[in-house]
């Protein structure tokens, strides 16, 4: 019975891993496209930042530095 449980656990882990993929260095251009941004509408993004700053008296920290090329 224990072997069946272990086997079931391995199958579950493997099925979860099947959805994982690595974005290779030369494919990172896809991540730089506008449609890959968390907020694709820059005006709405600026408005949300302004509201956040007004309420929290702080800003920033909502994006990552660099162009996603893994070089700096």
């Amino acid at each position: 019975m224990q072997t069946v449980r272990i086997f079931g656990l391995l199958v579950t882990i493997l099925s979860l891993l099947s959805s994982c993929t690595e974005v290779r260095a030369w494919e990172r251009g896809y991540l730089a496209k506008d449609e890959m941004a968390w907020e694709s509408d820059s005006l709405e993004s600026a408005l949300n930042d302004h509201i956040f700053f007004s309420k929290e008296a702080s800003s920033g920290g909502n994006s990552a530095a660099g162009g996603g090329c893994g070089c700096n």
């Binding site: 290779r24 260095a25 030369w26 494919e27 990172r28 090329c69 893994g70 070089c71």
Partner: peptide, 16 residues
């Protein structure tokens, strides 16, 4: 090399 064939051969890890 739009499909990354050569990049795959070299196993490029970062750009450039």
């Amino acid at each position: 090399d739009p499909d990354g064939d050569a990049a795959e051969l070299f196993e490029v890890y970062g750009m450039p």
